[in-house]
Each structure stands twice: as structure tokens, then as C-alpha cells.
């Protein structure tokens, strides 16, 4: 109920290796990136830590590198910087969609891309986006560095494939060849900052305007992002028009089985998920240059 965090120590590290070492030495330690989820949590004193390891000072950890076929984002790259990065938005409009809708501009100026992913709050927006983009996460653990596929990274609410001594160091998104576009849409809870449901969609159209490939991911409805395989299977090879999209979106109603809770009924979650799939696909297809109603 308080407005101050409990006691902890603080260390600023200059490399991810140092962070990894300290993490494995100190049992109740935690990585601090931007702190926009962690600090409010510490203030509730529901969560207590002995040591915070600030990785934001690691040289280059907050950078971004765009190459012809890929984008590499450092874990401490700020969400607000991603929002303002027009080059990244051009290649991956879905990143701008999500980054500009997270919390508010002040929080985005501090909050980091890596933090949004590693915290794995089901209400967060970047997890489904990264799953849709099939991003690769570079994780540094005691045994060295490894690369995790985004789809395998998110395990549940506040739970990822990383264990205590792992740190997410960077995110790599590969640009696919062909006519690829993307979109992210969300519905917030009726009050508050978090998403009730979100849909991240990456689509690839062939020369005749049919869906060649797609990945449609539902966020915030389940503890971890869910790839809507039924939707993607349906889309494959079909004409990218509003009829196809509508039909694909309607499949969602029967293909997911969300729970009812205080914030929404299962019915409303189905309804919203279906509409958001429609909206995300429509926007993504439009961005591919196809004019659909």
C-alpha cells in the first residue's frame, strides 16, 4: 500500500557478463532496465529484492541497428525511442503501432523494449508483436549466450524460458523477402493502462494478392501470446480481401476458449479477439498496398 520500495542494494554493471555473474551469485537479485514495471511493483512491497542490477548503463545495450535484412534492438532501447524511430517503423510498422500505444509517453521514455518482453506481463503489448515477427531473443546465461525463438520464449503470466540467472540482451527481427506488412491493434481494459486483448499480425502477399504466409498472434487474452494457427491456416492461398479476413476473424470465436473474470466475460473476450483479428489483418493488408474496404 506504500509509496516507497523496501530496501535493496543497487549495482550498475558495465557488461552483460557482469550482470550474469552477479545474478548467479545473488539469489534474490533482479535485473533493472527501465524499471517502469519493476519499481511500481517494488513500491507495493508485494515484491522484495535484495539487489537490483542496472543494465541500462551497459555500452550499446540501448542501441538499435538496422541492416538490409534485419533489425537488432538492444534490450535497454527505450520504448519511446522505438516509437520515434521512423526507419524501424517503415520496415516494421507493427513496432510503431505497439510502441506508441504502451502506457503513456512518460513511461515510454523510461521503459525499455527488453523490460517489456522479459517482464512478460500478459497485459504487455510487445510480446505478441515479437511472436508475430518471429523475433529471436539473445539470452545470456551462466553457460553463455543462446538464441531463443520468441514463440518459445513466453511461457505464461510473468514467466519466460529464462531462469533467474538469464538476461535478455537483444532482440533480432529478420526482414522477410516479398510483400510483407504488419499491424498491431488492441483493446484496453475499460479502465487502466493494460490491454484486455491485442492482435499482432504479420502478413505476406503473393504477386496475385493472395495470402502467401501470415502469423496472427493474440495477446493479453491468455497468460502468454497465442499464435492463431487456425486463422493463419485459413488465410493461406486465399485472396487478401475483406471477405477472407472477415471469415478468418470469425473463426477466432470458436477457436479460442478464454475465461471469464472480473474484467470481461469469455464472450466479450471472444468478440473482441475476433474484431481485433479483423482490424489487424485489414490494416496489415492495406499497408501491403492492397485496397480493401
Amino acid at each position: 500500500m506504500g509509496m516507497t520500495p523496501g530496501n535493496f542494494d543497487y549495482v550498475r554493471v558495465s557488461s552483460f557478463r557482469e550482470a550474469a555473474r552477479i545474478l548467479s551469485e545473488e539469489e534474490n537479485s533482479k535485473i533493472l532496465a527501465g524499471g517502469q514495471s519493476l519499481i511500481p511493483l517494488l513500491k507495493t512491497r508485494i515484491m522484495n529484492v535484495d539487489l537490483l542490477i542496472d543494465i541500462s548503463g551497459i555500452k550499446g545495450s540501448g542501441g538499435i541497428r538496422q541492416e538490409k535484412k534485419s533489425l537488432e534492438i538492444g534490450a535497454t532501447y527505450r520504448v519511446g525511442e522505438l516509437e520515434g524511430n521512423s526507419l524501424a517503423a517503415e520496415s516494421f510498422p507493427i513496432l510503431h503501432d505497439a510502441a506508441s500505444s504502451i502506457a503513456d509517453p512518460l513511461v515510454r521514455n523510461m521503459g525499455t523494449v527488453g523490460g517489456n518482453l522479459a517482464h512478460a506481463d500478459p497485459g504487455n503489448d510487445l510480446p505478441p508483436v515479437m511472436v508475430a515477427l518471429n523475433a529471436e531473443f539473445t539470452v545470456l546465461g551462466p553457460k553463455g549466450e543462446r538464441v531463443e525463438r520468441s514463440a518459445a520464449f513466453f511461457k505464461g503470466a510473468f514467466s519466460t524460458s529464462m531462469d533467474h540467472s538469464d538476461t535478455l540482451t537483444s532482440i533480432r527481427i529478420n526482414q522477410k523477402d516479398g510483400n510483407v506488412s504488419s499491424a498491431f491493434v488492441k483493446q484496453r481494459k475499460s479502465a487502466g493502462d493494460f490491454s484486455l486483448a491485442s492482435v499482432a499480425s504479420v502478413v505476406e502477399l503473393d504477386d496475385s494478392g493472395n495470402f502467401k504466409d501470415s502469423r496472427t498472434v493474440l495477446g493479453s487474452v491468455f497468460p502468454a501470446p497465442m499464435i492463431l494457427e487456425g486463422v493463419d491456416a485459413y488465410l493461406k492461398g486465399k485472396k487478401a480481401n475483406s471477405e477472407t479476413i472477415k471469415k478468418a476473424a470469425s473463426l477466432v470465436r470458436t477457436q479460442i476458449n478464454p475465461e471469464s473474470d472480473f474484467f470481461a466475460s469469455a464472450d466479450y473476450r471472444r468478440h473482441v479477439s475476433s474484431l481485433l483479428v479483423n482490424n489487424a489483418l485489414t490494416t496489415a493488408v492495406r499497408r501491403s498496398g492492397v485496397n480493401i474496404a
Partner: peptide, 27 residues
């Protein structure tokens, strides 16, 4: 507020506005 919502605590950190109630002095 203590819930990182209200922005009454906004300051510029390296020129960018942030919520100073959700930033450690050490940061």
C-alpha cells in the same frame, strides 16, 4: 500517486520527460 499514473512528478531526464516517482535516484 504511487502507481505511476498521474505525472505530477514529471522531470526531464537527459532532456526527456519521465516520472520521477518511478525512477531510482541511483538510475
Amino acid at each position: 500517486c504511487d502507481t505511476s499514473n498521474c505525472g505530477a512528478c514529471t522531470v526531464l531526464l537527459d532532456g526527456r520527460p519521465v516520472k520521477s516517482c518511478t525512477v531510482l535516484a541511483a538510475q
